[in-house]
């Protein structure tokens, strides 16, 4: 028992070292811009860079649209599948898992070939169209996470019974969706939204191959040309990821617990 605990601490300690040394090193490196002393110069430079502001704002906008598209796509589908077409569940679940199987670079490669300016649907013919395709691409990448979050939420509240109860009380479809279903899966939707945000904000492959001025390509560009700013950006990016995941953890505590069936 005693030796077991020693080994456990040792393994845990080594693991912790592997994970924290790079974080510490990155932070330390980001402070080294001014010769001979630590300073936040790198952060000042980065945050003051107009391209940082523009690309970050662009990525946030894209993330918001991605979340909207994802919610509009996933919530009605997941609800309808639970309520009326349970036999389609395996098919839908399989489709939502495909983006984990097909690498993002392959998906975007397909977009570029299918939706070029000479195609019947020339998304890539205009900047707005390309923006739309980027949002669509991100919604596809986020599909597995969004669908699972929402479907788990719906499972906990037993949509069928809730819907029938609302119908008996005389509610129409808009009332059911807006007043009964959405408030109950809100937490799940928000969890999916924050995970989507974390995925989209620094994404590189799609944005780069579609030539959009997003945060990911900007990061890559700075990394190739600067010394200390990348470290500062990495710290910022880690803070954003950490923030999103913390919000999800906190939200999980407010999620409705199943009342009539065990989880």
């Amino acid at each position: 028992m005693k030796t077991g605990r020693f080994w456990a601490w040792l393994v845990f300690g080594l693991g912790t070292a592997y994970f924290f040394i790079p974080l510490i090193a990155t932070f330390e490196f980001s402070l080294r811009m001014r010769r001979g002393e630590y300073s936040f110069d790198a952060y000042r430079v980065v945050l003051g860079d107009s391209r940082f502001q523009e690309t970050f704002a662009y990525s946030v906008t894209v993330a918001v649209f991605t979340i909207l598209l994802g919610v509009l796509l996933v919530v009605p589908t997941a609800y309808w599948i639970r309520l009326r077409m349970p036999h389609l569940r395996p098919v839908v679940e399989f489709i939502t898992l495909l983006p984990l199987v097909i690498p993002a670079i392959v998906i975007v490669f397909g977009y570029i070939r299918m939706y070029g300016s000479n195609s019947p649907l020339p998304f890539l013919g205009s900047a707005r169209g390309t923006d739309a395709l980027l949002v669509i691409g991100y919604a596809t990448l986020a599909l597995p996470y969004m669908y699972r979050a929402v479907d788990t939420g719906l499972r906990t509240i037993d949509v069928r019974t809730l819907t029938e109860a609302a119908q008996i009380l005389g509610a129409g479809w808009t009332t059911i969706i807006a007043r009964v279903i959405l408030p109950n899966v809100l937490i799940a939707v928000l969890s999916g939204a924050f995970l989507t945000f974390a995925i989209v904000i620094g994404e590189f492959t799609l944005a780069s191959l579609l030539n959009r001025p997003a945060f990911g390509p900007y990061l890559q560009n700075i990394g190739a040309n600067r010394a200390y700013e990348p470290a500062a950006l990495a710290v910022i990016a880690f803070a954003i990821t950490w923030g999103c995941m913390s919000v999800i953890q906190i939200l999980a505590r407010f999620a409705p617990k199943s009342a009539n069936r065990p989880n």
Binding site: F12, G202, L233
Partner: peptide, 29 residues
């Protein structure tokens, strides 16, 4: 550990490369 793992498994991409350059690069800590 579980919380951190949830975060770290999502911390990939460009910033991760920066972090390791700052750690094990020629001038890394």
């Amino acid at each position: 550990t579980m919380t951190f793992s949830g975060v770290a498994s999502n911390f990939a991409g460009v910033p991760l490369a920066f972090a390791f350059l700052a750690t094990l690069g020629r001038l890394g800590l």
